[in-house]
């Protein structure tokens, strides 16, 4: 079995995550898209680990899982905070920095 299929799957997943990140406005979907992109990089790392015959790739992917967990905790806490302060999960409502308002 050739590694090309795994590479194809990882790049497709990355682009699906990118499309979700660009085109949706629900904060939860944005969060899951970021997670999906990180997971596709994990898949790429595991595939390279098998292609090169070196277990270090799996170890980096394992550390990446820890980073993903940290990101998930922070992002979900931020969503809860944002929802409490403004009763909305629409990312278009949070443009205060872009408009230079308080």
């Amino acid at each position: 079995m050739s590694p090309n299929l795994f590479f194809l799957l990882a790049s497709l997943l990355f682009s699906i995550g990118l499309v979700g990140l660009v085109s949706r406005r629900n904060l939860f979907v944005l969060y899951m898209s970021i997670e999906l992109m990180l997971s596709s990089i994990n898949l790429l790392l595991a595939t390279f680990s098998k292609v090169l015959g070196d277990a270090s790739g799996s170890v980096i992917a394992l550390l990446m899982i820890g980073v993903i967990a940290a990101e998930a905790a922070l992002f979900l806490a931020m969503i809860v905070h944002i929802y409490r302060s403004s009763r909305s999960v629409d990312s278009d409502n949070f443009t205060a920095l872009a408009q230079g308002k308080e």
């Binding site: 590694p3 990882a10 990355f14 990118l18 390279f48 098998k50 292609v51």
Partner: peptide, 17 residues
């Protein structure tokens, strides 16, 4: 971007060790 990732990954290695 998808094609770039796919092509650059497959250009280097062709089989599992």
């Amino acid at each position: 971007i998808t094609l770039l990732i796919y092509k650059s990954a497959t250009a280097m290695y062709e089989s599992f060790k």
